[in-house]
Design a protein around this nucleic acid. Structure first.
Lengths: 379, 379
DNA sequence: ACGACCGGTCG
DNA sequence: GCGACCGGTCG
């Protein structure tokens, strides 16, 4: 059988025609781009004339699309991403949960997203994907961290029962890897994802805390961090260690810093970055909170993509658990990963790990409010 | 002009023929794979018959090679690596230096490697590339960190005048990104590159130090780290902070730990990881050394790939310089980046940054030897 | 401008 | 099983 009659070949020409029409080009205009007659375009699109690779390549230049993108679009070139990414439109309801198919090196893996309705999930998937695809537009003006923040915010709002860590890792991070193309998505994620988390924490709690006279402020710039450290009396004391989010109360009409939040998507060894600053803060009677998505999931073939986190269990604790429960390097840790095991009381240090989502039972705001009350009493 | 007469089209068919011959297939055998007659293969390879895209796709299946690999081979699908990687065979001598062309997103950038002879450079390039390509073999048994260590060792030996930081970044790291394919090269590099550095430090200095009764030992496992921390009396004192390389002296026939080396390819914020452990070590009279390649080079479009490092200048110091010169968080810092500015004496803390290569003038071994002598005197 | 952000890896 | 390794990013 000649290719020209092969339905698979027709997929190619149909795709070419679709792209041309989407770009608003007539056959005449495209032919002019290619330095050919209109009949060449017409015959090729109508499968009266075969295109070889060279002609296809030139055709695509005429259409302003790369060979790679075209081949990927028609599914001839497998995505070579080796980070697991969600396959759009490949989610299904299973009982109360949604099962999302993730693609990793040509293989598909199921990730179970608990307590999610499929229609809401698809709405979130669409919203997030559009946000991230929009970042690729040359005329895009939005900051990456803003787009990621909005993705998290939307997902948390629409899927309040879903594990926040799963939102961060599977819905937002993996979609970013899949859809963001302007620079190296993973390194861009490192840069922007962490800050988006800080912005989310600020925005999510600001209203509730404002009612108690408390201001929560993400410290995004070095200058802001330095200012907050100075206000705490920690300028130069902890090297130039850092604080991610500052907490202010209102006392005699003035804003007084009374604590802060160390925010980490995942801990790894990096949690020790924050320890000196945290210990110094606690030494000055300032509230020092560790907030984390405890976002660790091991990809296949080692793991199964479940966001198991890094704290281990209370019976078999990891080193990171010891930072809270044994060494008491922070006043408290809030993990927004429902797989994290909360502390079994009492702990050696008296400090504990809470596990929460961003719903009405979230103990973080009250912890901050209590902290401010205690701080104010001593002023 | 019909494609069949286009020299660019001939490149395609020539590549197809070359692959067939490399695979040891005859025209007959390939034709059988394709379910065609031998004349089909013969005519297509001889440019008497055009191959369209679908035919090409099937042809490649018959050859057992993916479309993606084929397009990459003929250079139609640019490697989508957006880390700058050296283009093999694209180095040239310019005076005393070698200029290496680096590919980044389809554009070429020159990197100047000072005090290098082209023939030696090409020998190193070949050696390193072969090492890393060998890691891709299914039957490969060598650990990644071992291959990287050998790459560093070979390059340091053959190119003793070249900036060690350039060796690490431009010769080894970028070749790894280019050649290592089994897993995500960058994350694999993170895992294996850092440990390779530790192994190199151990191997490079062990002989010289052994002559003084000093043992230098890379602590590669958690158990080894924990053991060394315990020997120093720092078990549980610094959280579970870490030390990368331990230094032992011989006293009354026993091995006594008297210090250690914190090893970091680049510092970023991560240098603060090591500060608590370092400060605790110094408090116990143990020698605490920071050793770094100060390996930071900003890629285009922001930077120019020069390994400028992160210490800033003595007049315009970065925060990281303060860790040494102001806070004295380490006894000393040795930077193996010739672009690093050494400390201007005296420093506020009395501690200083040395800049060195791994040649005969390297001050590190003597610093360690002096440290052991001082420690032994107090035993 | 130059800083801190984080996760796949593989031992 | 589960830890620490590091560099492109982008504000």
């Amino acid at each position: 059988m000649r290719s020209i009659h092969d339905p698979r070949y027709h997929l190619i020409t149909a795709a070419l025609k679709e792209i041309r029409e989407k770009k608003g080009l007539t056959q005449d205009e495209l032919a002019a781009n290619l330095g050919k007659k209109q009949s060449y375009v017409s015959k090729a699109e109508g499968n009266e004339r075969r295109l070889d690779l060279l002609e296809l390549s030139e055709w695509l230049i005429g259409l302003g699309i790369t060979l790679k993108d075209f081949l990927q679009n028609i599914g001839w070139l497998s995505e070579e991403l080796s980070v697991a990414v969600p396959i759009k439109g490949q989610a299904s309801q299973q009982g109360k949960d949604v099962v999302q198919k993730m693609l990793l090196q040509g293989k598909s893996y199921d990730v179970v997203l608990k307590n999610v309705a499929l229609d809401k999930y698809l709405e979130v998937e669409e919203f997030i994907s559009n946000k991230f695809l929009a970042l690729n537009e040359p005329k895009n003006k939005q900051k990456n961290r803003e787009a990621i923040f909005e993705a998290i915010e939307f997902a948390v709002k629409k899927l309040p029962k879903l594990n926040p860590s799963d939102i961060y890792v599977h819905l937002v991070y993996r979609a970013y890897i899949r859809d963001y193309k302007r620079t190296r998505a993973e390194q861009s994620w490192v840069r922007a994802g962490g800050e988006a988390m800080e912005i989310f924490v600020e925005k999510h709690y600001s209203k509730l805390l404002a009612a108690e006279g408390i201001t929560i402020k993400a410290l995004l710039s070095g200058a802001e961090k330095a200012k907050a450290l100075k206000e705490m009396g920690l300028e130069g004391v902890v090297g130039d260690s850092k604080l991610d989010i500052a907490l202010y109360g209102t006392h005699k009409g003035k804003q007084v810093i009374f604590g802060g939040i160390h925010s980490k998507a995942s801990l790894a060894e990096r949690v020790s970055d924050d320890v000196p600053c945290s210990v110094a803060m606690m030494g000055l009677g300032l509230q020092s909170i560790l907030l984390t998505f405890d976002a660790k999931s091991y990809p296949p073939p080692q793991g199964n993509l479940v966001t198991i986190g890094e704290f281990g269990t209370t019976d078999n604790p990891s080193d990171k658990r010891h930072y809270i429960e044994s060494h008491g390097s922070f006043d408290v840790c809030f993990s927004y990963n429902l797989h994290t095991y909360p502390s079994k009381l009492p702990t050696k240090s008296g400090k504990q790990i809470y596990v929460s989502d961003f719903g009405p039972d979230d103990p973080l705001p009250q912890f901050i409010i209590d902290g401010w009350k205690a701080f104010k009493a001593k002023l």
